[in-house]
Design a protein around this nucleic acid. Structure first.
Ligand SMILES: [Mg+2]
Length: 755
DNA sequence: AATCTTGTTTAATGGA
DNA sequence: TCCATTAAACAAGATT
């Protein structure tokens, strides 16, 4: 199954038949890996993880002992009933425990328990340090290392805690849907790897190793699963690499703006930058403080930073820019009150704050160079590799290298694949984790073959993940909310710019929105939510709601909010561009001037000359992914970002859905102190060895004071025999950080049930 | 009024 | 089939 590079990789878990009973490791059948195996080459060495991880093996003990089930797990394992989800238990596992064994036991437990017994287990790693690395961190300044060693509960300062607040546990199901980019290499693998546990006994041997680099060959021996979720390690890895990233960006951005060209751009004038229009537009917009730009400014920014467009490209590129602006709903046009000026902005939920700096380190686009910059962003790189299947970074795919310049480039853009959407579990939430899990397999019993799986995925339809919750979705006391990551739920966020908004009008958001008028002037802009490129959660079962429309209608409600006028003003500035207007016809051999290519008379000259601009340069490699960021991050970004005046940003980031009733958490997020929390600063630089990194990562969203954090966990659903990764957003309302030492706090302290 | 500029759409193309 | 790119038709406000 190769996914098209452009599409977001969705990590899905596939069920695999258990092949072996042997505990041992690794290898799964070769065949299965086809799914993805191809892409990953096996790292021979194994992974960091494996090695890195210390202890996993340790446990052993409990293995299938039925007894374990109850709280019998050895060392430090604690089990508690989930506060609000029926038949679900929260299992806190020591970092070094043998996850496999635990899973095995739990699986057995789940199966044996009757209908009422626990069927689903949320596995959390007990403390560990977590480190996060910022993903693409980027700039030289980079911090990739930064990590927060945040404890699960946020770093409070260390004090003793008493926990009084009630914990609000939210689970974000990142699971499948995680974008590779987000997670970084490792995660990618996870994708498919989830084994299904058919029977307790037969657990699939997990591999502990994950190879990061290895993508590749899936040798027979190679364990495709390396990273299977079962490996607790992943918890760490997943971490925030992604999350942190956001924050980083900000800084960068600023830099960007002013100093136009020089840095990156320069390089090759003749080579077309490897970025897609969408990416360049984002770079441009994000380079400004205000995060908005007029069309003209965008043009000039691009020309300044990528001389290619100024000197080489044919004028049609401008048409393409416009096309992209209109087409992608991530770009929103705001019209000034007077209606005369239109500024393009990036939808808050979708904005990853990408900037050119982040990507480009070294000058020059030459392939080799690319390698460079790729290097700069390790995570991305990795991702890419994976996608490609192997190390082809450098090599150009056989395909046309020639014309390359243009066509070959892969989109670097970030896709917003996933967003965290809070879903209140508490109430009668129906399928909680389902989305993440690939649920709905027709027959639970039957293991899907890979092919089958594929099929399913293919057909998935988009549906609304969570039931719409009426307005009062979350009760205050409701501790748990689920945040799902849906990559693809187009529907959901379709309409609304800021989902959050929709939900409950948080004042802040509203305001922001109010300020801007979406489009007033020039022409029709479809208010209707369009397909978004962003998130989507695919679900197998639902009928496709007629696409957008359905959704749209739902959402429509909120619409208005957006249309407010913004007081804009600004300098759009320089009016003096000289830029070329499309001269309709310029017989000259010069480049056609009109930005709108027109067939007829306009640019006749092109004829022979057409080629003029078509040089083929060196083929670009596929770079694709350089930009992808994790979904998770997004939120972060928002928080971190100094939102100047964007209240909207938070938007929770990411939640695309407008109509989700659930917005509680987002909102909270919003409310949460946006601090300038700089991950770097906050987090103590850990050594960050990846192997170690553990799961908990948190969004730094809350500054020091925050009493919330994101932690990764696993959800073991014995009904489906599925294992999903999830992100837990833990918030302890009522706790003031200052008062507690969250870091030291144990889960049990916060969650009584865990004990 | 002719031209530009900015926007929106639709379609074709080609890579993956 | 999906998606980015390109081309192009059109529309409407802005300029000349
Ligand atoms: Mg748009």
């Amino acid at each position: 199954m190769k996914a098209s590079p452009r599409r977001p990789l969705i990590l899905k878990r596939r069920k695999r038949p258990l092949s072996f009973s042997g505990p041992t490791d690794v290898q799964q059948d070769p065949g299965r890996d086809e799914a993805d195996g191809g892409k990953s080459k096996r790292g021979s060495s194994g992974c960091d993880v494996a090695s890195g991880c210390p202890g996993i093996g340790g446990m052993g003990t409990s293995q299938h002992d039925p007894q374990l089930e109850s709280q019998k797990f050895p060392e430090g394992i604690r089990i508690a009933n989930h506060p609000s989800i029926p038949n679900t238990q929260v299992v806190v596992i020591p970092r070094n425990a043998d996850l496999q064994s635990i899973i095995k036991v739990l699986t057995a437990k789940g199966k044996e328990s009757g209908t009422n017994g626990p069927k689903k287990f949320i596995l959390l790693s007990s403390n560990g340090s977590s480190s996060s690395r910022y993903g693409p961190s980027v700039s030289s300044k980079d911090p990739r290392t930064s990590e927060t060693g945040i404890q699960p509960l946020s770093q409070g300062g260390g004090k003793s805690v008493t926990c009084q607040g009630e914990p609000d546990l939210r689970i974000a199901a990142v699971s499948d849907q995680v974008h590779p980019a987000d997670l970084g290499l490792r995660i990618i693998k996870k994708e498919e790897e989830l084994p299904s546990f058919e029977t307790a006994d037969t657990l699939v041997p997990l591999t502990l190793t994950n190879k990061e680099a290895g993508t590749g060959a899936t040798g027979p021996g190679g364990p495709p699963l390396d990273d299977s979720l079962t490996n607790i390690q992943w918890l760490g890895k997943m971490s925030t690499d992604s999350l942190g990233a956001c924050s980083v960006k900000e800084e960068v951005e600023k830099e960007n703006q002013e100093p136009p060209a020089e840095s990156s751009s320069v390089e090759s004038v003749h080579e077309r930058p490897p970025y897609s229009y969408m990416a360049m537009i984002q770079f441009a917009i994000n380079s400004t403080q205000s995060k908005r730009m007029t069309l003209k400014e965008i043009y000039t920014w691009i020309e300044d930073h990528f001389p290619y467009f100024k000197h080489v490209a044919k004028p049609g590129w401008k048409n393409s820019i416009r096309h992209n602006l209109s087409l992608h709903d991530m770009f929103i046009r705001q019209t000034s009150h007077n209606g005369k000026i239109s500024h393009w902005t990036i939808r808050a939920e979708a904005n990853r704050f990408l900037t050119l700096d982040q990507v480009v380190k070294s000058p020059g686009y030459s392939p080799s160079e690319q390698a460079h910059w790729i290097c700069a962003t390790p995570l991305l790189l990795c991702q890419q590799q994976k996608r490609t299947g192997s190390n082809d970074l450098l090599k150009n795919p056989g395909a046309g290298s020639t014309e390359v310049g243009f066509r070959k480039m892969k989109p670097l853009l970030p896709r917003t694949d996933s967003y965290l959407v809070p879903i209140p579990l508490s109430l009668n939430s129906p399928l909680i984790l389902q989305p993440s899990t690939h649920i709905t397999l027709p027959s639970l019993q039957v293991p899907l073959t890979s092919s089958t799986y594929t099929e399913l995925t293919r057909r998935r339809k988009r549906i609304r993940i969570a039931p719409k919750v009426p307005s009062e979705p979350v009760t205050s006391n409701q501790p748990v909310n689920l945040m799902m990551d849906y990559q693809a739920l187009p529907l959901i966020h379709r309409a609304a710019p800021l989902p959050t908004t929709a939900c409950d009008s948080s004042a802040a958001l509203r305001i922001e929105e109010a300020l801007c008028k979406e489009n007033t002037s020039r022409r029709k802009q479809r208010h209707v939510p369009q397909p978004m490129e962003e998130p989507v959660l695919l679900f197998p079962d639902f009928p496709d709601p007629g696409m957008d429309s359905g959704m749209a209608s739902d959402l429509s409600t909120f619409h208005e909010s957006r249309t407010l006028e913004q007081g804009s003003d600004f300098a759009s500035t320089s009016a003096d561009y000289n830029f070329k207007t499309p001269i309709k016809e310029k017989p000259f051999r010069d480049l056609p001037a009109s930005s709108t290519p027109s067939k007829g008379g306009s640019s006749p000259s092109l004829g022979g000359g057409g080629e003029g601009w078509k040089f083929s340069l060196t083929p670009l490699k596929k770079e694709d992914s350089l930009f992808e960021f994790s979904p998770v991050r997004t939120p972060c970004g928002s928080f971190l970002t100094p939102l100047r005046n964007n209240p909207g940003y938070l938007s929770l980031s990411s939640t695309p859905f407008k109509d989700f009733a659930i917005f509680e958490s987002p909102r909270e997020l919003l409310n949460s102190p946006v601090k300038e929390l700089d991950p770097h600063s906050l987090s103590p630089p850990l050594a960050d060895d990846q192997g170690e990194r553990c799961s908990r990562e948190l969004l730094a969203s809350s500054g020091p004071s925050a009493n919330r954090s994101l932690t990764e966990g696993l959800v073991l659903d014995t009904l489906n025999d599925s294992l999903s990764k999830i992100l837990l957003d833990l918030s302890f309302t009522g706790l003031e950080d200052e008062d507690y030492d969250l870091g030291n706090m144990s889960w049990s302290a916060l969650i009584p049930e865990l004990r």
